[in-house]
Design a binder for these strands. Structure first.
Lengths: 236, 236
DNA sequence: CCAAAAGTGTTTTTTCTACACCCATGA
DNA sequence: TCATGGGTGTAGAAAAAACACTTTTGG
């Protein structure tokens, strides 16, 4: 009971940049784990809960207004997860829309999560686990919620959205089906405007936006729906 | 930074008893919140992580071997969530199969979660929130994983399983569909044996068991499945 | 007129739910 | 043989994926 315990919050802040899912990290300048890359975070203060704390900590690295969604992932509590005083971490997932260009400190950089996970870019402590858990959570929720809102710009074409989903899910996504699945659920709505074609021509793409920008579960019951229930959130 | 922080683990331990979803609670004998009912838990020790800790704490209330599944839910960290020294809680969901009859201490009792949530049985601190969160998690995972294994006896009839799902989900479940949905996913397998009919006759029911007794996601992609992927875990 | 990109229509396949019907037992 | 509960067969509906085809642009 005597050993003091610190509590920290840590966030896997993810953004799709150049078509690749990347995480925000900063390079540790001092031991332990000097030179290795850590996800942003810091110690919990007396007057804040972990949700408030993670937003405060992120504000030191990026403009928090650019973080479209934050949610708890898990507690990391191995007694020896960091050297020195015991430190328990509450890990979060944070998502930044692909069109945001946050100003970040000098010691901070975005890295593709593949590079962080395969060791190409060395990670501090158990932060690779946190990035993995964040990615898993993102993948899962993309397929049964409207979480795409947190990855996409306010307005976008279906192809652009398809590229975001492809990068986040790690497998090809059909633009045709994506459009129909998301509009059927009223997750997406057309703005009425169109985007100009690219340099090589082509039909101008219609612009869409997410109807809501807070998390909503769209497919609550994979199976075993309540009897008589309208199927898959149909609009009456 | 000066204020000391304690870390506790708390568990919403749920079991379906008499066809009703109930939670394990103990009555506080001393202030604060004297007389109110709390979920089991206790302080984290220096040499254990939160997962080890919750199992140890539960061992003091029930035979841990009877807890079929335990998983993290969330961190509760409001600075004033308990009076006195600050205490941060990692909340867990624990599930006990319906046929287990754990011996429990004198101050401990099972209560229907409805009674805990509507105030019929007064709850301590923020423990009602923890019970709610556990129930939500259970409901969600029942519909896209094999989590039923943690609620059911080793062997059971489909009607018995239907009653468990009905109690946990809170809405009617068809035995016919439950059987087909779970066997199609290879979640359930017949034991070959049959149960004797009840006192009023009827055809003897076939006995089934869960094929696995560790958590497995059976419906990963509600939509946006990877292309060419076999649909819904079909068996080749 | 052709290439490129976007969007729509249609078919195929799957499977879930609902419901009717058949089966095995005790009294 | 009848009531009771269990199990199976089948029909109907829904919707996702795949793919062919049409639309709209730039050169």
């Amino acid at each position: 009971m005597a050993r003091p315990v610190e509590h920290e919050v840590l966030a896997a802040v993810l953004q799709i940049r150049d078509g690749v899912l990347q995480a925000l990290t900063w390079q540790r300048a001092r031991p332990p784990d000097e030179g290795r890359w850590a996800v942003p975070g810091g110690l919990l203060r007396d007057d804040e809960d972990v949700e408030q704390s993670v937003l405060r900590q992120l504000a030191e690295k990026v403009d928090v207004r650019e973080v479209a969604h934050v949610e708890q992932i898990a507690v990391f509590s191995r007694p020896d997860r960091v050297p020195g005083a015991r430190r328990i971490a509450t890990a979060f997932l944070g998502l930044v829309p692909s069109d945001a260009v946050p100003a970040i400190p000098d010691d901070t950089a975005w890295h593709p999560i593949t590079a962080l996970l395969d060791g190409t870019v060395p990670t501090a402590f158990d932060h690779a686990e946190i990035v993995t858990a964040g990615h898993e959570r993102l993948r899962a929720k993309l397929s049964y919620t409207n979480l795409g809102f947190a990855l996409a710009p306010r307005e976008f074409t279906i192809s652009a959205l398809r590229d975001l989903y492809t990068a986040a899910l790690g497998h090809p996504v059909s633009a045709t089906n994506l459009q129909r699945v998301l509009t059927r659920r009223s997750v997406l709505e057309p703005t009425g405007a169109v985007a100009p074609p690219g340099p090589s021509g082509g039909r101008p793409a219609a612009l869409f936006r997410f109807a809501e920008i807070t998390l909503r579960v769209t497919d609550a019951f994979a199976v075993l729906r309540p009897p008589g229930e309208a199927v898959r959130g149909a609009v009456p």
